[in-house]
Amino acid sequence: MDFPPYLASMPMHAITEIHGEPGLRERFRLEIRAFDPDARARLTAALDLAAELHCDDRRVREPYLNHLLRVAIRMMHHYQVRDVDVIVAGLLHDAVEDHPAELAGPAWSATGDDPASTAVGDPTSAALAVLATRFGPRVARLVAAVTNPTYDPDRDRHVQYREHVAASLDREPWARVIKVSDFTDNGVGVIHTVGPKVYSSATKYRPLVPVLRELIARPDTPLAPAVKAHIFSQLDLAEERFSAILDEPVNVT
């Protein structure tokens, strides 16, 4: 497929709409040219694993892999991230949450047959162990920090989500970077969503804006001041879009 020479400067949702997954893959390839061969190999391996795990997943109108590609590209292009572990974790940030058994594979099956094993019925630990083996313990730790736990069915799910994000990211500065890129794709990108997910996404993510704003503003969040300013402007934009969705006046006839 032929892509325009300005693909490297196109907004990612424009690439998504015009060129789809192939265009985002090409943009990813262009971004990782700045890395050394070993780093490119790790990043490509992480993308291949993400594509394998999420091959049947859809995100409303698009393959789920598009979301993961945008999260990783945003960190490289807009956040100036050159830490390979962080980008790898960005590509795989939903792997353990969405596909723990597939990721754990035989490692989980072997322990899952043991009645004394803590892995029975819960392959999450085994999936994280596989990530640690394949990409290093730091990648596994970062993915764990952005993986949602099992929620208490008797408590509000959105409140628990917000509490988990605040607590988990408090101790993992680089995980904040992954989460805010994920949030930007979901929150600012809410206008690219259709159907009931528009309202449900706005309801879920709106209360997270002040939490992320405070976390990104912290001195130990490893981003340049200009990058933080860009993120704050994106959080402002997300607030505007959530308000337009959730605060629209009700017509009285």
Rank of each mutant, 00 (worst) to 15 (best):
R61P: 01
R61Q: 09
P63Q: 07
L65E: 02
N66Y: 02
H67C: 01
R70F: 07
R70P: 07
V71T: 12
V71F: 09
V81N: 04
V84C: 02
V88D: 00
L91H: 04
L91Q: 06
A95S: 14
V96P: 03
V96N: 09
E97L: 02
E97A: 08
H99F: 01
H99R: 15
A101Q: 12
W108T: 09
T111Q: 13
G112A: 11
G112Q: 04
D113P: 02
S117L: 02
S117H: 10
V120W: 05
S125N: 09
A126K: 11
A127N: 08
A127W: 06
L128R: 13
V130G: 08
V130K: 14
T133W: 13
T133N: 13
R134D: 09
V139E: 01
L142C: 10
V143C: 11
V143W: 05
V143A: 09
A145N: 04
A145H: 07
T147Q: 07
N148K: 12
P149D: 07
T150E: 10
D152Q: 10
P153W: 00
D154G: 07
R157Y: 10
H158I: 15
V159W: 12
V159H: 13
E163R: 15
H164W: 15
H164V: 09
V165G: 10
V165I: 15
A167H: 08
L169D: 00
R171S: 11
E172P: 02
E172R: 13
P173T: 04
A175G: 07
I178M: 00
V180C: 00
V180Q: 00
V180F: 01
T184K: 01
N186Y: 00
